[in-house]
């Protein structure tokens, strides 16, 4: 028979350990998010997506003779299309793990959130699945985007900037 271990007291020690004490004990073992690296990557990929958008817009302007305002909508549509295709091919989430906010913030990230939810919940049918879940993630962007726009609009109007009257 192997020797007996000495009387352990972990039961009491762990029972009496507070959340703060454990957080302190475990902290050295928990790697933090690499914030600087993430910022640089987000800057690069976010910038690259915007650059691609600019190239597309300039392309619409020079090839179809549109002005910059007319070219804006088809540019966004094309970016969304590219994002949806990349999402469907299973590539966008892999880009996002590297790029972080760089691929989440531009319009392509918004398209990815809708497309991924629609794909995922297709198995629950068109109405309850796709329709009911498509805005699962994008919904809060729309809600809080609208709320923020509303508040900013009021501030503008009160400060006499004239919110769109000219």
């Amino acid at each position: 028979m192997p020797a007996k271990t000495k009387q352990p007291g972990i039961k009491q020690r762990l029972d009496n350990m507070t959340s703060e004490e454990y957080k302190k004990l475990s902290k050295p073992f928990v790697p933090g998010r690499p914030v600087l690296k993430n910022c640089i990557r987000a800057f690069l990929i976010g910038g690259l997506i915007c650059l691609i958008g600019q190239v597309i817009q300039t392309g619409f302007m020079s090839i179809f003779g549109m002005n910059s305002k007319e070219a804006a909508s088809p540019t966004v549509a094309l970016l969304i299309l590219i994002s949806v295709i990349l999402t469907s091919l299973g590539v966008y989430d892999k880009i996002a793990q590297w790029a972080g906010a760089g691929s989440a913030v531009p319009v392509t990230g918004f398209a990815n959130s809708m497309c991924s939810a629609a794909l995922e919940h297709r198995s629950e049918g068109l109405v309850l699945g796709v329709g009911g879940n498509m805005f699962k993630l994008a919904g809060s962007v729309i809600v809080f985007g609208t709320v923020a726009a509303f508040i900013v609009g009021i501030v503008y109007a009160l400060m006499g900037f004239g919110g769109g009257s000219h």
């Binding site: 928990v30 790697p31 933090g32 998010r33 690499p34 993430n38 999402t87 469907s88 299973g90 966008y92 989430d93 880009i95 996002a96 793990q97 790029a99 972080g100 906010a101 691929s103 989440a104 990230g109 990815n112 959130s113 497309c115 991924s116 939810a117 794909l119 995922e120 919940h121 699962k136 993630l137």
Partner: peptide
């Protein structure tokens, strides 16, 4: 992923833990 986190193809960055 679908039940506990996000849709599988959703692009979110996961932390090193």
């Amino acid at each position: 992923e679908k039940q506990f986190r996000y849709p599988t193809e959703y692009g979110s960055q996961k932390p090193p833990t």
